[in-house]
């Protein structure tokens, strides 16, 4: 259990994190979202014990991150933003160093290093010095370092930044495989990642919590929730669609000529739209009911904050 209570951090004049409170239970994969400068990294730095909060507290499985820092840090695997490592070390040596710091010796140390490097497919670069690696490999070394001691809490600051689509997929699978009884907190800019990976999403901007819910709940806040998008060959009477009960409006996508019929809040409009199509005999090529667009929710929530 992670408990964050009234956590604030002030840098000189700027309030980076403003009275943040929430808790995370084991088994949850929490996606931490927000524009650049929202306070995501600062919050993660406080959770990992790197920065001291200006006020408020955070505890990791009951250990206060200030008063029992070492006990809390033993439970955490942390990937800092940008995955900094000791560039002049070889991958093998670096992972062995981390394993020793985590208290593993001898055969246990070797098997931990071997397992982590296998999980992130680092076997081929174990003998290379870290500064000569590509960005993707460096990120994976950082991840290997974080999961090496099989921590109960994983805090990953932009774990898939700089990875190609295949590697992103791989890292997501890895996180999902690890997540069963752990607490995972990841920050990301990639909203599809939140839908694909997270059981819960928290949106912050200006250091304040703006939304907290499952990705589905957040998507349902979108004006596109339950909207029906259709692509027809011939002209479609959009005013007839707009007149249907429960319809809030009709938007035309200029790029491919498709129509999006928006639903009023809490309404399901697909049956009516479908019925109308059949009545009029429109030749519809594609039809899709939307769950809602997370990026649109993200923008509408955070734009007001930035202004």
């Amino acid at each position: 259990m992670i408990e964050i209570t009234n956590l604030s951090k002030r840098f000189a004049q700027q309030l980076a994190v403003d009275n943040l409170s929430f808790s995370v239970a084991p088994g949850e994969v929490l996606g931490f979202l927000g524009p650049n400068g929202a306070g995501k990294s600062t919050t993660m730095k406080m959770l990992s014990g790197f920065l001291a909060p200006t006020s408020g507290t955070a505890s990791i499985h009951g250990f206060d991150i200030q008063k029992q820092r070492l006990k809390a840090q033993q439970l955490i695997g942390y990937l800092p933003e940008g995955a900094p490592c000791y560039g002049d070390m070889r991958v093998q040596g670096f992972l062995e160093f981390i394993a020793e710091i985590r208290g593993f010796r001898g055969a246990e140390k070797r098997s931990r290093v071997a397992k982590a490097s296998a999980q992130l497919e680092l076997d081929k670069v174990l003998g290379q010095s870290i500064e000569t690696l590509s960005k993707g490999f460096k990120r994976r070394v950082g991840l290997a370092q974080a999961i090496l001691h099989d921590p109960r809490v994983l805090i990953l600051d932009e774990p898939t930044d700089g990875l190609d689509p295949n590697q992103k997929h791989q890292v997501r699978q890895l996180i999902q495989g690890l997540a069963k009884d752990k607490i995972v907190i990841i920050s990301t800019h990639i909203l599809e990642e939140v839908s694909a990976l997270c059981t819960r999403a928290v949106i912050i901007a200006g250091g304040r919590l703006l939304a907290d819910g499952t990705p589905l709940e957040l998507e349902s806040r979108s004006r596109y929730h339950q909207a029906v998008t259709l692509l027809a060959d011939a002209a479609v009477d959009s005013s007839a669609l707009a007149a249907l009960p429960g319809v809030a409006g009709v938007e035309r996508n200029e790029r491919d000529g498709s129509l999006t019929v928006l639903a009023s809040a809490g309404q399901v409009i697909f049956p009516q739209v479908n019925q109308l199509i059949h009545q009029r005999g429109w030749a519809v090529r594609e039809i899709e009911v939307e769950r809602g667009r997370l990026d649109e929710v993200f923008r509408s929530l955070t734009r007001g904050e930035a202004a």
Binding site: F50, Q73, Y78, P80, G82, Y86, I98, I101, R102
Partner: peptide, 14 residues
């Protein structure tokens, strides 16, 4: 400079 201090200070080291 390299940022590795963040790694070092978040490991369980006094």
């Amino acid at each position: 400079k390299s940022g590795s201090i963040e790694l070092l200070m978040t490991l369980p080291v006094t």
